[in-house]
Amino acid sequence: MTPRRPTAPRPLFLLIPGLIAIAFLVIPMIGLLAEAPWGSFGAILTSQVALEALRISMVTSIAATVIAIFIGTPLAWLLAREILPGTRILRAMVIVPLLLPPVVSGVILLTAFGRRGLVGQWLSSGLGIQLPFTTAGVIVAETFVAMPFLIITMEGAFRSLDGRFEDAASTLGASQWTIFRRITLPMVGPSLVAGAVLCWARALGEFGATITFAGNFPGVTQSMPLAVYQALETDRSTAIALSLVMLTVCVVVLVALRGRYLRPTTS
């Protein structure tokens, strides 16, 4: 008998379910590749429906991410420093859109920003702004659903930042704004990138809230996921081609993050 090399223990009761989980996650992606209409791929992607869906997806998801960065980052800071009263409740409210079925988020947005909604009637009669069934509505829906990802990431980053750096900057004469701009933000920079990418990926994939609140109008509110959904009923190969594009985008993003989420978190 040859002596066994000492290795990390591999208990079967963990190994087998683990491998099943891997298969469950990977086989569908292989299935997508297998059924991809490689021959007509170019024609499908340059069709007007696909191009417009791609354009709308890019514009709205980037807009939603930018909005989230500009209002979500300050909120994350406020939550981390527990400056507002009822921080615990506020934090729970921030997480709600993460857990809510997206279609419910859509209903919520309709009741708030719809033509007869709480804020919507005021927006439409007072300012003449219509959100439902417009591209702006898509941005609102995506921001609502995706911003919590950025807020949670940033709050964690602000929270784990050693307060002495800000103290030191303050004793050196820096104003609050200078401290935030030159010390706080650069030190949480990697987290900001990660949070923004998470937020953007979620906005890109947004379906339920968008179709409920903004509808499914090609060229106006039909983003990639909506186009995939619609194509699936009429032209399966278009749906698969578009899905493949989104899968590719996700993989590229993961690689671009250089495994930030592929490593186990230790710090």
């Binding site: 002495r164 750096f165 103290d167 900057a169 303050s170 104003s175 650069p186």
Partner: peptide, 20 residues
């Protein structure tokens, strides 16, 4: 008066040099 308005120099324990 907040710290920037006081004429002080502060050397922190473990120094707190800005790492970036």
């Amino acid at each position: 008066l907040p710290p920037p308005a006081r004429s002080i120099g502060y050397v922190f324990q473990d120094y707190a040099l800005f790492p970036h």
